[in-house]
Design a protein around this nucleic acid. Structure first.
Length: 276
DNA sequence: AATTAGTACAACCGCGAATCT
DNA sequence: CAGATTCGCGGTTGTACTAAT
């Protein structure tokens, strides 16, 4: 299986982006749309690899990106979704409008995992890919000074995790979701394409299509999770019990998420006869 | 004030899967 | 159908910044 030649070729810029590079990339994408990352840098006049351009755009330059100030509601949602989905950062990010997978991943690694550990929760290190050859970063930066338990400012968080307490013993390792794009969805997307007709990877405009990215087996894990944690059904989450709604945006997110789960179940039922 | 340790996050890397030719 | 190309994902690293000593 061919792999794209690595972009670390001579003559290409690396490291932090300059304001000029940002401006070039932004104006190019505004005029021509996303996609064709491979050839984009050349056409945009950038001495960067396409991969780098894509990353910069997705994680930093996109106009719909919220940066910083992850509020307690978003934090709760991240924790819940991580509990459900594991390190599927892109899926989690898809439930948090304006947040990127990279930001959530960083936030989890630098804030949440430590916070949960400090509160005595077992944070699972689920890294099927971590067996990769690259040398582990040892523990060069560690040593949490967890002398203060800091329970007060996160009682809600603790509550959530305690409600999920059983999950500690029965952890759910959802299999890596395989990409699943129904033809009709792809067609519908491409029909709505605008711009110069490049291949549609317009996540920015459509949001991540999580529904079609989640594998069938994921549905079972959702159910498993619900049983473990005490939800009867994902579509009947009691959102008012131990986890109070703080504002409309969170409610909207949860509704969206419930719809996603409902969609998966429906599709699953639809597919059942075909599997026999 | 200088040095060291810790933190945050942007960017890089390699891989698997989808798509193209 | 096979091989090549492209894309997207998640793990990891580099480094600027901040806090502690």
């Amino acid at each position: 299986m061919g792999r794209a030649p690595c972009c670390s070729k001579v003559g290409l810029h690396r490291g932090p982006w300059t304001a000029r590079e940002d401006a070039l990339l932004t104006s190019y994408i505004q005029n021509h749309g996303e996609g064709n990352w491979r050839s984009l840098p050349k056409r945009a006049g950038l001495l960067r690899c396409g991969k780098s351009c894509r990353l910069r755009w997705m994680n930093y330059l996109r106009p719909d990106i919220k940066r910083g100030n992850i509020g307690p509601e978003e934090e709760d949602l991240i924790i819940r979704l991580h509990c459900l989905l594991g390190n599927r950062w892109s899926l989690i990010a898809g439930r948090l409008p304006g947040r990127t997978d990279n930001e959530i991943k960083n936030y989890w690694n630098s804030h949440l995992s430590k916070k949960l550990k400090n509160q005595g929760f077992v944070v699972r290190e689920e890294t099927p890919r971590s067996k990769r050859s690259r040398a582990p970063n040892s523990d060069k930066k560690k040593k949490n000074n967890n002398n203060n338990n800091n329970m007060n400012n996160n009682s809600k968080l603790a509550k959530i995790m305690q409600s999920n307490d059983a999950a500690e013993s029965t952890k759910i390792y959802a299999p890596k979701p395989t990409r699943f794009k129904p033809k009709w969805l792809v067609m519908e997307k491409s029909e709505n394409m605008t711009g110069d007709g490049e291949k549609g990877t317009s996540e920015a405009s459509s949001g991540t299509d999580d529904a079609d990215l989640v594998s069938w087996s994921h549905v079972d894990h959702v159910r498993e999770f619900d049983q473990t944690v005490g939800f009867l059904d994902a579509t009947h989450w009691d959102l008012t019990s131990d986890f109070s709604m703080q504002d409309e945006s969170l409610e909207r997110l949860y509704n969206e998420y419930s719809q996603l789960l409902q969609f998966e179940v429906d599709v699953n039922q639809l597919a059942e006869p075909l599997m026999q």
